[in-house]
Simulated scan of single mutants.
Amino acid sequence: MPRPLPHISHALAARHEALWLRVTSLHKDITTIAAKKPDAPVGDTERVLAEGLISDGRPFLSARHGKLPVAAQNFSGLAVQLGQVLAQLDDYENRHAAWNARQNCRCWRVEGEPLPIARLRPDVAVAPLTTANGEDLRAKLLRRTQNRERQIFEDGFHKGLSARRGPPPEPETAAVLPPAAETYPRGR
């Protein structure tokens, strides 16, 4: 009889994903430095951060019992250590995740509904947003945005055109007209 597949908790899956991202980011930075200066000593900040991440990864590492390793003193050694931690995190993921055909992605094996691995999650189809009248909210917002941009362009265009033409010419006053009372007689 086949052995049942192991299940993990939702919290442990989320913790694994957060740790994987942090270790990957630090490993990338350390590897970049190690490529240029492999024998350079690791600073206290990087060393403490690496040891903290290795400690946080204890539930996912194959050697869970005993003392955790101390971070290496040079960048090349620390890059190797972080690479090994990443490999063990990937191994843990491979043992506790599987392809889910219904969700079309790799999912954690957890109790209940399978949980997609967030960093590997495919683009999810977004449900249409509608107004109370049933109008597509995204299309309405897009039209408003385009109208606003068009109006800003038109205003700027007319301001630029009037600035190029200069101020309107002064009206010429050849003859002074008499006041209105003298021009039009009042009714009786």
Rank of each mutant, 00 (worst) to 15 (best):
D44H: 14
L120T: 01
V176F: 09
H27N: 04
V48A: 14
D136N: 15
L137T: 09
L12R: 06
P185Y: 01
E113R: 15
F60D: 01
S25K: 13
P69C: 05
H65Q: 10
P169K: 11
E51G: 05
G156K: 12
R143T: 12
D39R: 11
N133A: 10
T131E: 13
N94Q: 14
R164Q: 10
L115D: 00
L120V: 02
A18I: 07
V48R: 11
E182R: 15
I152T: 12
H10C: 10
I54L: 09
C105G: 09
A180K: 13
V80S: 08
V42I: 06
P185I: 00
E93V: 06
D90R: 09
D44W: 03
L53Y: 05
P4D: 09
W20H: 07
S9K: 01
A139M: 06
R15I: 03
T32H: 14
E46A: 09
D136P: 10
S25W: 05
L89T: 08
P114R: 05
Q84R: 14
A101K: 14
A181M: 07
H16P: 04
A14R: 13
F153Y: 15
L89F: 05
Q84Y: 06
A13N: 02
A118Q: 09
S55K: 07
Q84H: 07
F60N: 00
R58V: 07
L141W: 11
R58M: 04
A11I: 13
G43D: 15
A132V: 13
K36Q: 15
V126C: 01
K140M: 08
I8K: 02
L115N: 00
G160Y: 03
R58Q: 12
C105R: 13
S55H: 07
L5I: 10
P167S: 11
Q88L: 05
W108I: 01
L142T: 07
A163F: 12
R15D: 07
E113P: 08
R119V: 10
I152N: 01
V70G: 03
P69D: 01
P128E: 11
P6I: 08
D91I: 03
L129P: 02
G77P: 01
A98N: 14
T130S: 04
P128W: 08
R164E: 15
A79S: 10
E111C: 04
V23I: 10
A18H: 14
P185D: 02
T183K: 06
I54S: 00
A50F: 01
H7W: 04
N100D: 14
L12V: 02
R148H: 08
A181R: 15
R165F: 14
F60E: 00
W99G: 02
R165K: 12
D123P: 12
R138Q: 09
A174E: 12
R150K: 11
P114Q: 02
R106H: 04
R106Y: 07
E182A: 12
V85L: 08
L19R: 03
G57N: 14
V110L: 03
G156M: 14
P178G: 11
N94R: 06
V85R: 04
G166T: 03
W99V: 03
P38N: 06
E172G: 14
S55V: 05
A87N: 14
R95S: 03
R186F: 08
R106M: 13
A139D: 12
R95K: 15
A11G: 10
A97K: 00
R106N: 01
E182T: 10
V110W: 00
H16Q: 00
W20M: 05
E154F: 06
